[in-house]
Design a binder for these strands. Structure first.
Length: 534
RNA sequence: GGGCCCGUAGCUUAGCGUGGUAGAGCGAUCGGCUCUUAACCGAUAGGUCAAGGGUUCGAAUCCCUUCGGGCCCGCCA
């Protein structure tokens, strides 16, 4: 059974009869919005939302951006400003930090783009909001005022979770914005008026007042307040909050005992790491600017392929992504597709099928689509003529018998898309061994790898090519005839190895006839001559 | 120091609330397809189930310990 199908019923029974439900997750726009943030906050939440919709519930999926949080000024964040800059913004709300690149309103707007602009590709019907927006609502303002009236009870509970630094009597669990230094969290709230003005004394020396929506609640109250104001029923959250006795526990406590609120059904998930050439580079990190963005993923991969990865692994398992493995990721997706449409499923394929089912959501392609393996696409794109790649590839696939019928329009689109992705991948992230690179000169070390028979085999080929027509069929025919000669000096396999060595400097390559046919005849003849000359 | 999560073939993993001596996909190797590959089809190899101990007739599966990767228990969110 798929882990998802054990989780979903538990969510269902938590919800009971409730028809209208909200699933919400949050993230802080502290820097690079990497793909790891799509895992729990977006994809997992979305899969559950869809699952609940299927059983007839009205589900709202919300993604809350924590934009009111303060900017820490970590090394990676400061580095965005270039030499020595940015220090003056430490402690400001994220929305008050300027865009280091100067192209957007502020920090949040800039770094949200590579994530937010393509979010739709990974999950539909996600409503985006921000803590900044939430603080501006009447519900939140009312909620804050209510909480501040219970400040003493809150203090008592919060202090249980704090070690030495207990909050003193009279503590107000609110962080006003200092109007002078523009920082949040460095001013102490002194009193709150009924109309929501918080007077403060800041460590910079300023004394003044800020409105509720300019500041923010202490985080232990902010979290449950969001549950309340947004009516959250289900909430995925990162493993950092998951430990019993950890942060989420204290928030649950406050929700229950101060706000009379049932905390949402929580789902903890592990983080996403990245690796390069087999080396684990650690978890992706927003404020350290480590990782790659959803936008970058889409340059090389289909959104479903990533959803598939995220939904295959149990949320409690760490996932490590490597852009060099795009071909494998798509193989998994493709096998999910074919398993999905299989009439009789073995137990093994059931899991893949189900993963595909929840990965593809409403975009489950129809049955029997022609799908070119990603790796094949990456090879074909390298040897195809540049203009009209799609039709070149289609005719190649037809000639080789891999494709035995006309492609429908959607299939052609899908194929074209995949060729484009694989093409981008080849130039940027594919492992070296995937590259098919025509050697302009006969590589030096090739000669030493060829025996006398090897050289002879190529010489015979050269001779036969001379009079042959230069098209795929003729080339193919020539090779077949030749390798069947009684006294041909090497095995067929060996011959092709020799040919690839002479042209590519590697022992393997794309199908020979089509490949040769797009090269200049004279070039090939010359190369074969070179091999024979000592 | 206390707690939590993860560790099954090169890679991705099934099995692990109801213990009976490991299944799969990819990759690799070999072969087939009277067209060669990295397509397709078939076959083969590959696992002391992180390590050690315990319970048991019998453990990947239950218990304890250890190791490795990560997180929480201060502040900040």
């Amino acid at each position: 059974m798929h882990w998802f199908d054990e989780l979903l019923p538990r969510v269902e029974s938590f919800l009971g009869e409730k028809k209208d439900t909200v699933i919400s997750a949050g993230l802080s726009v502290s820097g690079l919005q990497h793909v790891g943030r799509l895992r729990g906050e977006v994809v997992l939440a979305n899969a559950i939302a869809e699952g609940l919709r299927k059983s007839g519930r009205n589900v709202k999926q919300i993604l809350v951006l924590y934009t009111q949080d303060s900017w820490k000024g970590k090394d990676g964040q400061l580095a965005q400003f270039g030499d020595g800059g940015g220090k003056e913004y430490v402690g400001r709300r994220l929305i008050d930090v300027p865009d280091p690149k100067g192209c957007h309103e502020n920090w949040v707007d800039h770094y949200w783009r590579d994530f937010g602009d393509v979010l739709e590709e990974f999950a539909t019907k996600v409503e985006i909001t921000s803590t900044t927006e939430v603080y501006q609502t009447d519900e939140m303002r009312r909620n804050v005022l209510e909480l501040l009236e219970k400040a003493e009870k809150i203090r008592e509970i919060v202090n249980r979770y704090r070690g030495r630094m207990k909050y003193p009597e009279g503590w107000i669990p609110f962080e006003p914005l200092c109007k002078k230094c523009m920082k949040i969290g460095s001013a102490e709230a002194l009193s709150v008026s009924e109309d929501g003005q918080v007077s403060y004394k800041c460590s910079c020396g300023d004394e003044g007042a800020s409105s509720i929506e300019e500041g923010k609640l202490n985080w232990r109250l902010e979290w449950p307040s969001l549950w309340k104001v947004l009516s959250v029923d289900i909430e995925p959250f990162g493993k950092d909050h998951a430990t019993p006795g950890g942060s989420r526990d204290s928030c649950k406590n406050l929700a229950k005992n101060v706000m009379s609120l049932t905390p949402p059904f929580g789902i903890a998930y592990e983080w996403v790491g990245m690796s390069r050439e087999g080396t684990d580079l650690g978890d992706m990190s927003s404020s350290d600017f480590k990782g790659f963005t959803p936008k970058e993923w889409l340059e090389f991969g289909e959104p479903h392929a990533l959803r598939f990865i995220y939904l295959q692994a149990k949320p409690s398992k760490r996932i490590v992504l490597d852009l060099a493995k795009m071909d494998t990721y798509h193989d998994h997706l493709d096998s999910g597709y074919s398993n999905y449409w299989q009439d009789e499923k073995e137990e093994e394929s059931e899991l893949k099928s189900r993963t595909y089912d929840i990965s593809a959501v409403d975009r489950v392609a129809r049955k029997d689509m022609f799908i070119l393996p990603y790796k094949e696409a990456s090879l074909l794109t390298q040897i195809s003529s540049v203009e009209d790649k799609l039709h070149w590839v289609v005719s190649r696939l037809t000639d080789t018998g891999i494709l035995t019928r006309e492609l429908a329009e959607d299939e052609e689109q899908y194929l074209s898309k995949r060729i484009g992705l694989a093409d981008a991948w080849i130039t940027k992230y594919a492992p070296e061994s995937y590259h098919v690179e025509l050697q302009e000169e006969l590589p030096e070390d090739v000669r030493s790898e060829l025996t006398e028979e090897d050289v002879k085999s190529l010489a015979i080929f050269r001779e036969r090519l001379e009079g042959a027509d230069w098209n795929e069929d003729a080339l193919k025919e020539t090779m077949i005839q030749m390798t069947k000669m009684e006294d041909f000096p090497v095995s067929t396999k060996r011959f092709f190895r020799n040919l690839y060595l002479a042209l590519l400097g590697k022992e393997q390559g794309p199908r020979a006839a089509p490949f040769l046919s797009i090269l200049e005849k004279d070039f090939v003849l010359e190369r074969l001559d070179d091999v024979s000359q000592e």
